[in-house]
């Protein structure tokens, strides 16, 4: 009980600091103080998460040492690699770094959903649907951000287009939704693996196919959109994890990211539907 209070309060402090940091970051004078405050919030909440080790389910207790070891190693590897990449990369290639780190966040949300879908066979229908929707958005954000990174980094030089692409993408989207429904429906039975695995594959492919036809000049707007997507996925996964801090941080980023996307598109004299569904911006790509 005591542990739950501590972890819950750490989440409260962190989400407060995030909102304050985001507010401070929207003015040039206080921007640096804002990111520092948000950074302390993140440090605090990650440290407090380790208190949850006193509170794990009995089934997982035999694996405790292995799981903690894996968690610490993954934390160190991920932060060291990203910190090294972020410090050493050229200032001009910052946008693609934002894209790749955003994709990692989306992938983390999708992986979290995958762990939940692997382990739990008794999730009620509503949280289950929320988890699957979060997984869909997270997967799109992951593969889409990776394609955006490849485009900005000059690894994919030309927009990839063919006739009937829009119809193909629409069909792929419909197929992904059907697979998502099948995943939810057949979840209680042991034969749920196939639609679930196909669903994750289709969602990743959808992100790739959505991003490929969009020109390089529109990439910053698109990265901002995927940023909002990841926030939304994080918020939805926070519901299944029973963690209001995740829900608040994710949804704040989701809505502010959507507004930011609209503002950026407006600053470039483009509308969002133009960016997503027309090939007008190809001159820069």
């Amino acid at each position: 009980m005591f542990v739950e209070y501590c972890v819950g309060l750490s989440g409260l402090v962190a989400s407060g600091l995030f909102i304050y940091g985001l507010k401070a970051m929207s003015s040039p004078v206080t921007a640096v103080a804002g990111i520092v405050a948000a950074g302390y919030g993140m440090l605090f909440v990650v440290a407090a998460t380790f208190l949850n080790l006193f509170n794990i389910t009995p089934e997982a207790r035999p694996n405790l040492l292995v799981n903690v070891g894996l968690g610490v190693v993954a934390l160190l590897l991920g932060s060291l690699w990203a910190g090294w990449r972020g410090r050493t990369v050229q200032m001009t290639s910052m946008p693609q770094m934002v894209a790749i780190f955003n994709g990692m966040g989306g992938g983390s949300a999708a992986a979290l959903a995958a762990v939940e879908l692997l382990g739990n066979h008794d999730i009620p229908l509503l949280p289950l649907s929320v988890t699957v929707i979060g997984a869909l958005i997270g997967c799109i954000s992951l593969s889409g951000s990776l394609i955006a990174w490849a485009k900005l980094d000059g690894r994919i030089r030309k927009p990839f287009r063919f006739s009937g692409q829009r119809a193909f993408n629409a069909a792929l989207f419909a197929a992904t939704v059907v697979l998502a429904v099948l995943t939810v429906m057949r979840y209680a039975t042991p034969s749920a693996e196939l639609p679930r695995d196909l669903f994750f594959g289709a969602a990743l492919l959808l992100g790739v196919c959505m991003t490929l036809p969009i020109g390089g000049a529109d990439m910053p707007v698109l990265i901002s959109l995927y940023n909002a997507f990841t926030g939304l996925a994080v918020g939805l996964e926070g519901y299944i994890m029973n963690d209001p801090a995740l829900m608040i941080a994710g949804m704040v980023v989701g809505s502010s990211g959507t507004l930011l996307t609209a503002l950026m598109a407006k600053a470039m004299n483009r509308s969002l539907t133009n960016v997503l569904f027309s090939n007008f911006g190809e001159t820069g790509g």
Binding site: L22, P28, A31, A60, G105, L118, P220, T230, G238, D243
Partner: peptide
């Protein structure tokens, strides 16, 4: 401030790492 703010909110949704940590702590297979 559009781009720094995008990057800053990108940092904030990194809080997903604590969800992933909790899932990993409770992993059984």
């Amino acid at each position: 401030l559009h781009t720094p703010l995008m990057s800053g909110s990108n940092f904030i949704h990194g809080i997903i790492v604590i969800g992933a940590l909790n899932a990993l702590f409770n992993a059984t297979s």
